[in-house]
Design a protein around this nucleic acid. Structure first.
Lengths: 217, 217
DNA sequence: AAAATTTGTTAGTCTTGCCTAACTTTTATA
DNA sequence: TATAAAAGTTAGGCAAGACTAACAAATTTT
């Protein structure tokens, strides 16, 4: 049985490895993700190695074992199902679901999650556009192009966000953006890379950082 | 902010004071309810006194303060709403809901609970027949007579259970009993108080202990 | 009322998960 | 390549929540 804290470490490790495809995961980065100090993360890595959820040697690379990855994906499954429930059934808004799901994802009951999945009609994506793993841990992986990769004059469709923080999502909403919205890239500034976009007749300027956090297709 | 553990202590204190109306709550009894040793319960009592959720002096009586009682009732509200959700929406059986609700009751989000309440149509009773407190902490208090109090030859209706353990509830189901069922008391044995009951044409014998855990009207 | 039993309390220890401070290894830079 | 910077590690401490063992107070029994 894993503690909530251990589960959070596994989830963070999965997230980091999936986000920075090729980059390697480090103690510092892991610690930053979890808002703890590197020393703390280091302690936990030893513990998770002991329990064989991660592979790693002193000063070496950190990798989830198959078992660790399975656990981590299951937590993601729970998180995204709860987000979907909050959004679809309880009428939570897009940017409110994450925080509560962070708590709900640690509830231990396979039966509960399977029944919730069924109740929601086996959804494939959560309210942020992220794929929901099935009982076997499989999930649809859509190719994620960032808004920042779109050429001037091209249009695209918003399919997901990279950052689930409330502050980011509220900004997204403020710009009139939402899942499946059509976005046209009007221009880019040479100076700082600011991008001018048009959404439903409305033009706005967004930063490169912002554009790197919006997935489109 | 209260920890899950602290919440469980408050809940246990409320439960004990409501069950044994006049009897006084003791360290030992509290410890037994929470599956900890008396010394542990004692430590926590000091802490809860410090935070002014309980009133008590060394070797003296233990009482929840108004604040403590409010907190405790709110946890009960959450617990019973979750049980109702599991039973009504997710198709859990009567005897499975308690365990999962024990975890769900600690999720911190007032918004979540209010929305859940609304989604369930503001239910007044949970699947075990226990009243669900409203946002103000008020709840319907129905007079609870025990099956063991029913006279020979009399009939009654089952309205709630005193013990939510899976083992007890499964036994209830096995006897063909459920909420709102009509129960007729056929006879009582002088020897050990065993009671013969009839439910939907079916006769069974139940122990005094069992009969003291079934509320009827 | 004294003795025995039950109930309640204190002191000291353990584990988990976090911290700081100091140190070591690796990587980047001059 | 030597040195500076960054990243990673270790040692020692702290708070929460549990435990055991020993002790104190209250209650029951004789």
């Amino acid at each position: 049985m894993l503690s909530n804290t251990e589960e959070n470490y596994l989830k963070a490790l999965l997230k980091i490895t999936l986000l920075n495809e090729n980059e390697q995961v480090g103690t510092n980065e892991l610690a930053k993700h979890l808002n703890v100090k590197p020393a703390t993360a280091n302690d936990m890595l030893k513990k998770l190695k002991e329990k064989s959820f991660v592979e790693y040697e002193k000063y070496g690379k950190i990798n989830l074992t198959d078992e660790g990855k399975t656990k981590a994906i299951y937590i993601v499954r729970k998180h995204r199902l709860w987000e979907t429930f909050l959004y679809e059934k309880l009428d939570f808004s897009w940017d409110e679901v994450h925080e509560v799901a962070e708590q709900l994802e640690h509830i231990q009951s396979t039966k509960l999650i399977d029944k919730l999945d069924k109740y929601l009609n086996f959804p494939l994506f959560d309210p942020h556009g992220d794929p929901i793993p099935n009982t076997k841990g499989e999930f649809l992986s859509i190719y994620k192009k960032k808004l920042s990769d779109v050429e001037i004059g091209q249009s695209c469709k918003m399919v997901a966000v990279r950052d689930n923080s409330s502050s980011f999502l509220q900004y997204v909403v403020k710009l009139g953006l939402g899942l499946n919205n059509q976005i046209k890239v009007i221009s880019k500034q040479d100076f700082d890379g600011t991008i001018e976009i048009e959404v439903e007749e409305k033009k706005s300027f967004v930063s490169t950082k912002f554009a790197e956090n919006l997935f489109v297709i």
